[in-house]
Amino acid sequence: MNPKKILLIIGGGIAAYKTLELIRRAQDRGFEISVVMTGAAQHFVTPLSVSTLAKGRLYSDLFDRQEDMDVGHIRLSRQADIVVVAPATADLMAKMSHGLADDLASATLLANDKPVLLAPGMNPNMWEHPATRRNRAQLAEDGVQFVGPMAGEMAEANEAGTGRMAEPDEILEAVQAILGVPKAGPLSGKHVLITAGPTHEPIDPVRYIANRSSGKQGYAIARAAQAAGAKVTLVSGPVDIAAPDGVKLVSVQTARQMKQAVIEALPADIAIMCAAVADWRATHEADRKQKKDGSGKPAALELTENPDILAYVAQQSDPRPALVIGFAAETDNLIDNATSKRLRKGCDWLVANDVSQEGVMGGDHNAVHLIRDSGIEAWPQAGKQAVAERLMSEIIQHFQ
Rank of each mutant, 00 (worst) to 15 (best):
N2P: 11
P3C: 09
L7P: 15
I10K: 04
G11M: 08
G12A: 08
A15Q: 10
A16Q: 11
K18C: 06
L20C: 14
L22G: 06
R25K: 14
Q27S: 12
R29N: 12
E32W: 00
I33M: 07
T46P: 03
P47G: 01
P47Q: 05
S49W: 04
S49I: 08
T52W: 11
S60M: 13
S60P: 02
S60E: 12
L62R: 09
Q66W: 06
E67Q: 15
E67P: 03
M69D: 14
D70G: 10
G72I: 07
Q79M: 13
D81N: 14
I82L: 15
V83H: 00
A94K: 06
A94H: 09
D103Q: 07
A107V: 05
L110A: 12
N112W: 03
K114M: 09
L118A: 08
L118S: 05
M122S: 07
N123I: 02
W127Y: 15
E128W: 03
P130F: 01
A137N: 13
L139V: 09
G143P: 11
F146P: 04
E156Y: 04
A160E: 12
A160L: 09
G163R: 08
R164Q: 11
E173Q: 13
P182N: 12
K183V: 06
G185W: 04
L187C: 02
L187P: 01
H191T: 13
I194F: 07
A196Y: 02
A196Q: 03
H200E: 08
H200W: 05
E201C: 07
D204P: 14
I209S: 00
K216N: 04
G218E: 02
Y219I: 00
A224F: 07
Q226C: 09
A228I: 00
T233A: 05
S236M: 00
P238Q: 02
V239H: 03
L249K: 12
V250N: 09
S251P: 04
V252K: 07
K259A: 06
Q260P: 04
Q260W: 01
I263H: 03
A265T: 00
A268T: 01
A271F: 15
I272A: 07
M273E: 01
M273R: 00
C274W: 01
A275T: 10
V277A: 08
W280C: 01
R281S: 12
R281Y: 04
T283Q: 13
E285G: 02
E285V: 15
Q290A: 09
G296E: 13
K297G: 00
E302Y: 12
E305C: 08
N306E: 09
F327C: 07
A329V: 10
E330R: 10
T339I: 02
W349Y: 08
W349N: 05
N353I: 05
Q357P: 07
E358D: 14
G359K: 10
M361P: 09
G362W: 02
S374T: 14
E377F: 10
A378F: 15
Q381T: 13
A382T: 03
G383S: 14
Q385P: 06
A388P: 00
M392K: 03
S393I: 00
E394L: 10
E394V: 13
I395R: 02
I396Y: 00
